[in-house]
């Protein structure tokens, strides 16, 4: 028998499933052709179609979400059918910090800044801690510790956001306000970011562990052969080599943080006027003050106000515009991970 069939399977298949779909021999030239009944061939073809429909449904969903959010979100800016609200200009929505829906003022800058602020702070904690834990699991921990850390991360990622929220509300907030703030309420960026950091750390840890584990062993061995200490190898060879994938891990962590709604809503204090409040404050420690000012983000404001607004009103439209913004942000972040991934291959 010629060797051809094996070669052609390898060439034509993806993961061992032949790509040819003639219902006959999958192996192409040289392989024996099995006879299948008409029914079998039909089943094969219909199943193919069914699986294709499922995948197209997913693609359709991506477009569908965009379409429906856009019809409602853009109604704030464009005159559309069924729209009872006022048509706003982009600048009075995106460039204004004045949020007073009952007086017809819809500046969402406080929420954008709030989202960026709390996400940035969370990432400031979670990114270094996550990457270092990743390298610890991949390159330093003994086997038992590695297993323990995997389980800890699995459990942390599985805890629901409302449970994180109630933990923040009943344990962290009272503790912080009693210990450092002389019993002033502690809700605001600091505690929200802390909770968020714990929520996104498993994502960063698991992706960066993968990144370090997939590095060629020669890199680590070479560094050590050149006389590096464990830490020198990690800091000067392994982390730089894994950089594109570490950045991807951080971007995905960022995405999780910016989209989180319930946990943050329960601890951040939900004050849309936080920018004005901060401007008025004459504190001597403005930064510290900022960390403990009750604030609001895009997601928390949606949770807070969407149930109270009538569909089609200006207020409602602006809230959907905030949702659209979050969705577009997700797409940008995913495309950014693609860019980073390509950098790795090059």
């Amino acid at each position: 028998m010629p060797q051809a069939p094996e070669v052609s399977i390898a060439a034509a298949s993806e993961g061992g499933y032949p790509v040819l779909e003639d219902g006959l021999s999958p192996a192409g030239a040289g392989a024996p052709a099995f006879k299948h009944s008409r029914l079998q061939r039909l089943a094969d073809r219909w199943a193919h179609l069914g699986f294709l429909v499922c995948s197209l449904l997913v693609v359709g969903l991506i477009g569908g979400i965009l379409y429906f959010l856009a019809t409602r979100g853009l109604a704030a800016f464009l005159p559309m059918a069924g729209n009872t609200g006022r048509t706003l200009s982009f600048s009075e929505v995106f460039l204004s910090t004045d949020w007073a829906p009952s007086s017809d003022r819809f500046g969402i800058l406080p929420f954008i800044a709030g989202s960026l602020g709390v996400t940035g702070l969370a990432l400031l904690i979670a990114a270094p801690a996550g990457v270092l834990t990743g390298v610890f699991i991949a390159k330093m921990a003994p086997a038992w510790m590695r297993n323990l850390m995997r389980q800890v991360m699995d459990l942390l990622v599985g805890i629901p956001s409302v449970v994180y929220g109630i933990f923040g509300l009943t344990v962290v907030l009272p503790l912080v306000s009693r210990t450092w703030l002389a019993d002033a309420p502690a809700s605001g960026f600091a505690v929200s970011a802390l909770i968020l950091a714990v929520m996104i750390v498993p994502t960063i840890v698991s992706l960066s562990t993968d990144a370090f584990e997939s590095l060629p062993a020669a890199l680590d061995e070479g560094a050590q052969a050149l006389g590096s200490s464990r830490w020198q190898a990690i800091w000067r060879v392994l982390i730089p080599a894994a950089r594109p994938r570490l950045l991807t891990a951080m971007v995905l962590g960022l995405g999780r943080a910016i989209g989180e709604a319930m946990a943050v809503q329960m601890v951040i204090g939900n004050n849309p006027q936080w920018v004005a409040l901060m401007r008025e404050s004459t504190d001597r420690a403005p930064f510290l003050r900022a960390l403990f000012t009750p604030a609001a983000t895009l997601t928390t404001e949606l949770v807070q106000e969407l149930p109270n607004t009538a569909a089609g009103s200006t207020w409602n439209n602006v809230l959907f515009a905030m949702g659209l913004l979050l969705y577009l942000l997700t797409m940008v972040l995913i495309l950014a991970t693609r860019r980073l991934g390509r950098g790795k291959e090059a």
Binding site: L61, I65, F68, L306, G323, T330, M331
Partner: peptide, 16 residues
Amino acid sequence: CIETLAATPSIVLALF
């Protein structure tokens, strides 16, 4: 598409 859907915040799915 799968990655985008996986990364879409649940509040956005809620709006949809």
